[in-house]
Simulated scan of single mutants.
Amino acid sequence: MNPYAFLAIAIISEVFGSSMLKVSNGFRRFFPSIGVIIGMGVAFYCLSISLITIPLGTAYAIWSGIGTALTALVGVIVYKENFNTKKILGLVLIIGGVVILKLAAGVSH
Rank of each mutant, 00 (worst) to 15 (best):
S50W: 04
S50F: 09
S50E: 09
S50G: 11
S50H: 13
T53D: 14
T53C: 10
T53V: 14
I54N: 05
I54F: 07
I54M: 08
I54S: 01
P55F: 04
P55D: 11
A59S: 12
A59V: 03
Y60K: 06
Y60R: 08
Y60W: 11
Y60M: 11
A61G: 15
A61P: 15
I62D: 00
W63H: 06
W63T: 02
W63P: 05
S64N: 08
G65T: 06
I66D: 01
I66R: 05
G67P: 02
G67I: 02
T68Q: 03
T68F: 12
A69F: 14
A69I: 11
A69Y: 12
L70S: 02
A72M: 14
L73H: 02
V74G: 03
V74Q: 03
I77W: 13
Y79K: 11
Y79L: 10
K80Q: 11
E81T: 12
N82W: 10
F83S: 01
F83Q: 01
F83L: 13
N84G: 13
N84W: 06
T85P: 00
K86M: 12
K87E: 05
I88D: 02
I88S: 09
I88H: 03
L89N: 06
L89S: 09
G90W: 01
L91H: 02
L91I: 15
L91C: 08
V92W: 05
V92S: 11
V92P: 00
L93H: 03
L93A: 08
